[in-house]
Design a protein around this nucleic acid. Structure first.
Lengths: 225, 225
DNA sequence: TCCGGTCTCCGCCTCACGGGGGAGGACCCC
DNA sequence: GGGGTCCTCCCCCGTGAGGCGGAGACCGGA
């Protein structure tokens, strides 16, 4: 069972180059090529490939939009590898958001591209080193901020941190009282202490602090209904 | 100029294997080996390598602690590649937090390890495909949440979104009034509308919403002084 | 033994906050 | 012209929130 690939790029030359490199591999078969997003969707429907090499800048419909639609409607495990000349952050995030599983630059060595396709077919994900670096950078940055600010968190007692966590969920004093099984007056004491120790004015600022300090993280809990 | 590498692992056999694979490359030179974190720090100081292959689980001092100290005190561009048998999330994040630039599993094919070392030396970063995938997953997840909740944001007028953004910075009504050059009464109107439209109770919950919806992101602005 | 920290709780006081309801002006579209 | 939305501003009113001071109980260390 070879890996079935569709190559999407508006430049026939580039498309041909990729197809040739991949086609020469025993375990890879280029089943179709497409010159824009619409053709890509059509090709995906018809051939149900394992992997799609997708350019971003194309006429008619760009690769991001096409990726989103293909991933959305596909009922088989298709994986999209974005292959582009440009690498601005926005493209990467949009691509990942659209459902792409990989993102590499066109200057990638042929053997690496082949390896990338195999990785994708195996269910893995892959980013260009420079892009991976930025992703890591983002994470490391956030974590660094976390550690820096968490010093102030240490000044709080365990109970006060619990109260702060409740505040950060949007709880009122009465709700915190229920959540922690303590009296309303006690909650007020704790809240006052938290605000004083952290140099904050009100619970809204406490929520900001909780998020910025990493005590809670966006996505930790649901909002609304 | 060959790439100078230090290999750190408590198992001599593993260490030897890595050293042999890397040593056979023309452009890579293994300048030292270490059996635990303390030795790693010492070796890093002495040899000032370009890349350090670092195991995590080791006696005396583990690889994460050693990585943190080395990266912290190094005044040359050293890059640490974590090479481990285990891949739980926590390790990855701790490693990146400690300052590692890469994270791969020990079952990596030799040629890939060599490529990884070269990537690191070039200033790139690298994660195992499975780990990259999870990183991407996290991002995609967050972005998905972003889009889902941002629908509700669209119900707000431009001015109301501005007010919400101010609330999310921890501003009081009076401060928002100054920031937006509008009267205090106007601010109250906007705040009321925001809360009503979003189904929230008070400004604290509005802050939570702002973070969870992606309107603001942790790290967007400073907190405290 | 006493001291300090923590957790618990009680008043009292002030006020910013938020709800309700209303109103005028600017703009746009039919 | 009329209807719609948005931004602006006003008053009244109730209450949750936060500051301040005090207090009893527990526990661990000096």
């Amino acid at each position: 069972m070879s890996i079935r690939v569709v190559v999407v790029d508006d430049q026939a030359l580039v498309r041909g180059g990729f197809a040739m490199v991949l086609g020469h591999q025993d375990d890879i078969e280029v089943v179709a090529e497409a010159g824009n997003g619409l053709e890509a969707i059509e090709a995906a429907r018809t051939h149900r490939p394992d992997v799609i090499l997708m350019d971003i800048r194309m006429p008619e419909m760009d690769g991001l939009e096409a990726t989103a639609r293909i991933v959305d409607e596909a009922n088989w495990p298709v994986r999209v590898l974005i292959v582009t000349t440009f690498d601005p952050d926005e493209y990467v995030y949009k691509a990942l958001r659209a459902g792409a599983s990989g993102f590499v630059l066109k200057d990638i060595p042929p053997e690496d591209l082949v390896a990338a396709v195999r990785t994708m077919a195996d269910g893995g994900a892959l980013l260009s080193p420079s892009i991976t670096r930025r992703l890591i950078g983002r994470f490391a940055e956030r974590l660094a901020v976390d550690t820096a600010v968490s010093h102030r968190l240490e000044r709080l007692t365990d109970r006060e941190r619990e109260v702060l966590a409740s505040i950060a969920r949007g709880s009122s004093n009465a709700e915190i009282s229920d959540e922690l099984f303590i009296g309303a007056a006690t909650v007020k004491s704790h809240v006052s202490n938290v605000l004083t120790k952290l140099g904050l004015r009100d619970r809204a600022q406490a929520v900001v602090f909780a998020y910025e300090s990493g005590l809670v993280e966006a996505g930790d809990h649901d909002i609304g209904h």
